[in-house]
Write a protein that binds this DNA or RNA. Structure first.
Length: 1060
RNA sequence: GGGCGCUUAGCUCAGCGGCAAGAGCACCGCGAUUACACCGCGGUGGUCACAGGUUCGAAUCCUGUAGCGCUCACCA
């Protein structure tokens, strides 16, 4: 089919020869472009063109050729280094690149800041998993040794990710690439922590956290996954202390009863009066605990109705009205405990085994038997104990959802511990985030908006699509303080040193505090000292000499991510970080953040809070937030690194090319929430595409089986992407890794090929020279029409881009290039362009402008074609400016004046298209061979239209003659009549003999269609409400349509009569 | 339970108050014509999930129902 692999006359040689200086050295000519676009052979050369032109380097204000231009900046959502990028990232980054490239071409000083995220818990987990496969554990190494291993992993995947971004054509300023744990970012983290600590916004909190008993670390709320679990509801009897009876509590977690410190009941409960002041003797433990009254307790349905309380609470269905209160092991119980001054008795160790060493003191002999048991085992034995003691009232099956660690997948234990918190509930953080919202996107009474005065950034944050503003608002209205300490090794170590409080510390600390090098606080008998600078050895040595030790925990990853728009630009001091002093001021605030919706709470929120808090004028990190769709696999599951169902963009680049991938992704970016991407596999043994065999994981996900059998040869096998990502299967020479693909990308591939061939055709004509510019009014009709279409397309594209309607951008160009330019313009000019230099000027100009507008979506193919097109001579017409440029990536966006749009020419050409379509339709209906010439006879009004088309109707319809149809004269014997614009028109020479019966059926169908239309239009026009209330233009339009339909109907009836 | 979204041609999706509802793929017919078979020309195919309502006019707005998906919170 093409010259793949020959390299002799193909695109590869053309691109390679032009790579060092594409525009100047390229000699355009048909022979240089292969018959079809072969991305593999050109993409790397194009990448080299951009690299050698330093095309994506951004400089701060005042420096470089764009130093005085308005800045445009996007911060990449830093991909985490746990794994390679998948198609979700490809979508995310393609959209950012489209914006970046378009704004660069529009002349702005444009920075797309790239980098990666260390993803503390996730990365540590994948490395630990790999070590486990080698039979080793984290604790077999020192902290430093282990971190070095994680670092190795990070280096490998960081390089992979950057190379994936480059392969996709991402126009990031790679010279500024950052990593959230590099020294520049680490300095920002240190300063931010210090300031928050000093300002009282970081504090030590002793409370229940989400505890992962396997990983033995605290987790943030958003790191907990809810999973449906089949369990039981146990009804336990607790005897009253005075022996007068018992109360029954319902619980799913009987093992926590060892730590109960009260039983609660609702004060409205009819039984409350009798029980008020009584106490309960806790079985097994023997602890005597009070019965407290609290509104939180739900009454059982029957009682609720009796006292007129709300019985609709789902809990009412199984509640007993008595609630065991275990403050140390349940968040709600903790709240009740706080309200009633109850003790929190922690009965578990850090691994969630029953323990008497973490706050449980009154262990009875009977209870001692349960020490050391796991949660699950303790539950069984305690239930058995109650059953044996006759205190188990009943048990029933009960399904409920339980929080699980997204890391180890075991149930989370609400666990009492002391952690570091950021007080995000403070108005300076959450309040500032809500005040940032654009007022028209804030839901409900803007109470929050009224709290603060207008600061810069207030009211400026806008979500696209706007429905996501609600997510942002609700998150901040219900926000809870943020637990930021993690008991991990991989991450930013918390810069706090601690020692038991003592008077002697003052003398040591005073000078450091005074000079602002440290900040201190005292909490529960300990002194905590935050050291501002990592390099402050003097302060650290002094602290350590006085018995202080550094907190061994690290910070939540999102703490450093939250600083990304600041840290990447060198905050707090770019110069000290070795960067340009005004880098930060130039590019923060940035313009838009592109991300997925689950990131709104995790990251967008925190960036907004931190950027506003840390900048003196409280400005935003970005003004717009664009939320794009989530890419799902063919089974409706989110593509994710952890599930391993992601498709590597390099696979799609391999099968379809980077531009095809990009175009397709942009084209599918509507404002929907999810897009499905059915994934096929390519057999590495045969190259055949097939649907992979799937399995269901224990968690219920459908994924490609880890190994697959070759569809061609059952003796051969391969490893799937899932098999590789999950570590289940390792590719070998005999069992290689299979690439994925998806036929979805055919759309983009076909389009790129179409553009390639249209350009090839244009080049073959342009070699005759492009002529001097002439006013648009002097050009042939079809030229004036295509220029009008070009102008309108440019506006559609610009409007779409300005409001992030990416699919409209792609579709406007798809239709313009394929439908208007290829199907109509190129076909129409074929007979004339070789002789008409004016027309070649139009062709040159339209092609040039099209490549420019398409470049942000398809940078590789457009840049490859660019030097060939540039070499044909000057582009542009009066009103259309297309200044030359060596590289397309740095070329100007087209400038097209509205005055070039000739509306009457456009309208006339649209009538031309209509008659061409009508004639083609008649040919098609009769299966006339394309080569066969036919004759047209039409009344003078229609003949005038045909003549005005300047030969286009004749050439596009294969007409050998056009003649006047005199009214009343007999039509030719082989005449095929039809109605056009209410006139009778006859085609002849289509067939040897007219099939009168078939002709009658066609005419009768036309008559029926028109009659239906006419009755529709008349219905509207007879409706007084329509005449009175609809827009006048619309009424006029309807009248015109009615008239035309009536004329067509009359013509068809006359034709039918003549046929008989 | 709260929030968000989806349900339009066989498939994947646009359209979100006003032409006789669109695209790509698939399908059917004609076609190796000096850009392109990753192609050209023509065609088939839809009571726009269902039920009410608002309106001169509803796929489009409102209410309700059903199914699907995501997300947050929570269950003793």
């Amino acid at each position: 089919m093409s010259s793949h692999g020959t390299g002799s006359t193909g695109a590869a040689s053309a691109a390679h020869s032009s790579a060092p200086a594409p525009a100047s050295s390229a000699k355009a000519g048909l022979g240089e472009l292969a018959k079809s676009y072969s991305p593999k052979e050109t993409e790397s050369a194009v990448g080299e063109v951009w690299r050698s032109a330093n095309a994506f380097r951004a400089e701060p204000a005042g420096i470089g050729p764009r130093g005085n231009a308005e800045p445009y900046c996007i911060f990449i959502p830093p991909p985490n280094v746990t794994a390679a990028l998948h198609l979700g990232h490809a979508l995310n980054n393609t959209l950012q690149d489209v914006l970046t490239r378009a704004h660069r071409m529009m002349g702005q000083n444009t920075l797309w800041m790239p980098g990666t995220d260390h993803a503390g818990i996730a990365t540590q987990t994948v490395v630990e998993k790999r070590l486990l496969q080698q039979g080793k554990r984290r604790t077999d190494f020192t902290r430093e040794e282990f971190i070095a291993k994680v670092q190795e992993w990070k280096d490998e995947y960081e390089a992979t990710i950057i190379s994936q971004l480059e392969a996709m054509g991402s126009s990031c300023d790679f010279s500024r690439t950052r990593f959230t744990m590099d020294p520049v970012c680490a300095a920002a983290v240190r300063e931010a922590f210090f300031r928050l600590f000093k300002d009282g916004l970081i504090y030590r909190g002793y409370r229940l956290v989400n505890w992962d008993p396997v990983s033995r670390t605290a987790l943030a709320d958003d790191e907990v996954e809810m999973e449906e679990v089949k369990g039981h509801m146990w009804y336990l009897r607790y005897p009253l202390e005075d022996g007068s009876g018992h109360v029954t509590v319902a619980t799913t977690r009987p093992e926590t009863m060892l730590g109960d410190s009260a039983v609660a009941m609702n004060p409205k409960d009819p039984r409350a009066a009798a029980l008020r002041g009584k106490r309960v003797k806790l079985p097994i433990v023997g602890r005597v605990i009070p019965i407290v009254e609290d509104d939180y307790v739900v009454l059982p349905a029957e009682l609720a109705q009796q006292v007129g309380a709300d019985a609709s609470d789902p809990k009412a269905a199984f509640a007993t009205g008595f609630l065991k209160v275990t403050p140390a092991h349940d968040p709600n119980d903790w709240e009740i405990g706080q309200r009633h001054g109850l003790k929190a008795i922690n009965v578990m160790a850090e691994d969630a085994t029953i323990s008497d060493r973490h706050g449980w003191e009154d262990v009875s002999d009977e209870a001692r038997a349960f020490l050391g048991l796991s949660r699950e085992e303790a539950r069984k034995r305690i239930v058995q104990w109650f059953r044996d003691a006759g205190l188990l009232e009943k048990a029933r099956e009960y399904d409920h959802s339980v929080g699980h660690s997204y890391r180890s997948h075991v149930p989370i234990e609400p666990y009492l511990s002391e952690q570091w918190y950021v007080k995000v509930t403070d108005d300076r953080l959450a309040g500032a985030a809500i005040r940032a919202m654009a007022p028209d996107q804030v839901d409900g009474a803007p109470a929050a908006l009224q709290r603060g005065g207008p600061a810069s950034g207030d009211g400026e944050l806008r979500f696209w699509p706007e429905r996501y503003a609600k997510t942002f608002q609700m998150w901040h209205e219900n926000i809870r303080d943020w637990c930021i300490s993690r008991q991990l090794w991989w991450g930013h170590r918390i810069p706090v040193w601690v020692a038991p409080e003592s008077a002697a510390q003052h003398a040591v600390l005073a000078p450091f505090v005074k000079s602002g090098r440290v900040s201190e606080m005292v909490h529960s008998g300990k002194r905590f000292v935050c050291v501002r600078r990592e390099g402050d050895r003097e302060a650290i040595q002094s602290l350590e000499a006085n018995g202080f030790t550094q907190d061994s925990d690290v910070l939540d990853t999102w703490f450093s991510s939250a600083l990304w728009p600041l840290s990447t630009l060198g905050w707090p001091d770019p110069a000290a970080a070795g960067l340009e002093p005004n880098l930060l001021a130039t590019f923060n605030p940035s313009d838009v953040l592109c991300t997925a919706r689950e990131i709104i709470t995790l990251w967008v929120s925190r960036m907004v809070m931190f950027n506003r808090y840390f900048t003196p004028d409280h400005h935003l990190p970005f003004r717009d937030v664009f939320i794009h769709a989530m890419i799902q696999d063919g089974y409706g599951q989110k593509m994710s690194k952890s599930l391993g169902n992601g498709v590597d963009p390099r696979d799609i680049i391999h099968s379809h090319g980077a531009d095809a991938m990009r175009f397709t992704l942009v084209q599918m970016t509507t404002n929907t929430q999810d897009v499905r991407m059915p994934v096929d596999m390519i057999d590495p043994h045969s190259g055949e595409v097939f649907a992979p065999a799937t399995i269901r994981t224990s968690a219920g996900h459908t994924v490609a089986d880890a190994t697959q059998v070759s569809p061609k040869d059952p003796s051969k096998r391969m490893v799937s992407g899932y098999g590789f990502a999950s570590g289940v299967a390792t590719p070998t020479d005999a069992m290689p890794l299979a690439r994925n693909t998806s036929s979805k990308f055919d759309l983009g591939r076909n389009f790129c090929n179409k553009l390639w061939n249209a350009t090839r055709f244009a080049l073959s004509n342009l070699s005759a020279g492009v002529g001097d510019p002439v006013p648009v009014s002097e050009l042939p009709l079809v030229d004036r029409w295509i220029i009008a279409r070009l102008h309108r397309t440019m506006h559609t594209v610009e409007d779409a881009l300005a409001s992030y309607r990416f699919n409209e951008y792609a579709e406007a160009l798809y239709d313009f290039v394929w439908r208007d330019f290829c199907d109509w313009y190129l076909e129409a000019i074929k007979p004339t362009v070789k002789q008409d230099a004016r027309q070649r000027r139009t062709l040159r100009t339209v092609l040039d402008a099209s490549l420019r507008m398409l470049h942000p979506i398809c940078p590789f193919v457009t840049e490859t074609l660019w030097p060939h097109v540039q070499a044909t001579g000057e582009a542009g017409l009066p009103g259309i400016k297309l200044p030359p440029s060596a590289t397309l990536a740095l070329a100007d966006w087209p400038s097209i004046a509205c005055s070039v749009e000739d509306e009457s020419a456009a309208a006339l050409f649209e009538r031309t298209q209509a008659i061409v379509n009508a004639i083609r339709n008649k040919r098609g209906e009769r299966q006339v061979q394309p080569k066969k010439r036919i004759r047209l006879q039409a009344p003078s009004e229609i003949l005038a239209l045909v003549q005005a088309s300047e030969g286009i109707v004749e050439s596009l319809c294969g007409l050998e003659s056009v003649g006047e149809l005199v009214p009343g004269s007999a039509p030719p014997a082989d005449g095929v009549p039809f109605a056009f614009e209410g006139r009778e028109v006859v085609l002849s020479g289509l067939v040897d003999a007219v099939d009168v019966g078939a002709e009658r059926i066609r005419l009768e169908k036309t008559i029926a269609d028109r009659e239906r239309q006419i009755s529709g239009f008349r219905g509207k026009l007879d409706n007084a409400g329509y005449i009175a209330k609809a827009k006048p233009e619309l009424v006029e339009e309807t009248k015109a349509k009615l008239a035309e339909a009536e004329a067509d109907l009359a013509a068809a009836r006359r034709l039918l009569a003549a046929l008989a």
